[in-house]
Amino acid sequence: MYSLSYRRASSVEEARRLFKEASDAAYLAGGHTLLPAMKQRLAAHDVLVDLGAIADMKGIGVSGDGLTIGGGVTHAEVAGSQEVKGAIPSLAALAGSIGDAQVRHRGTLGGSIANNDPAADYPAAALALAATIRTDGREIAADDFFTALYETALEEGEIVTGVSFRIPETAGYAKFRNPASRYPMAGVFVARHKDGTVRVAVTGAGNEGVFRWSEAEQALSGNFAAEALAGLSVDPDMMMGDIHGSPEYRANLVAVMARRALGSLGSAEAII
């Protein structure tokens, strides 16, 4: 790791200020993406602004049709939260399937969303649950938030303070894990919302990161069941390929995981 300065912020405002004062700062949340990259000297920042002590980013609350989770809430806290389990059980289950137990104790929702790693789990839930990403300055619809691989609509220095998920009528998540890294090679979150709309979001597989699978959404709007997806597949040209899975294989996994997500509504299935 290159030399750096560590700053712990106690409020969002302080974090913004510390960030602005530095020449090339980064926010430090759970650190489980940033620190490994910095340790391997693949990334360098002169200042790390730690968001871990900001109390305003910690809460979980339900109001009306929305479930709002603070950006600083850890995956373990989401997985264990009675509010989340009650409102969107498959979201709690998704959080409980991220990484490993130690990662879940440190990794945060805000960090995961802001990084937009193509293999992260949360972006699929954010898209399928028509989430609103709350930052220190504005609200961004999930549909507008994830712009490209590792890229989001966030401005320089903007902080994800929380995410409001729309509470669906029912939802499910299924993923197939990469045998080495254990990140999803294909993760599909399906949700039927109370207004009858269906959303299907895919992570881990697309060559441009998380995406909504519109053909599946159409197919499922009439019949929200696995059989409605029979014969439906994504275009392998849109898929990533690497030593663990070719685009064709990932395309197959997307179709299979979508069906399985429908078979595990109210929970999450992780195949490992």
Partner: peptide
């Protein structure tokens, strides 16, 4: 792995300052 405030964490993936 160590316990930080009672929870298992990977001590290679956090700064001492944290």
């Amino acid at each position: 792995v160590v316990h930080l405030d009672g929870k298992a964490v990977k001590s290679c993936t956090m700064l001492a300052a944290q």
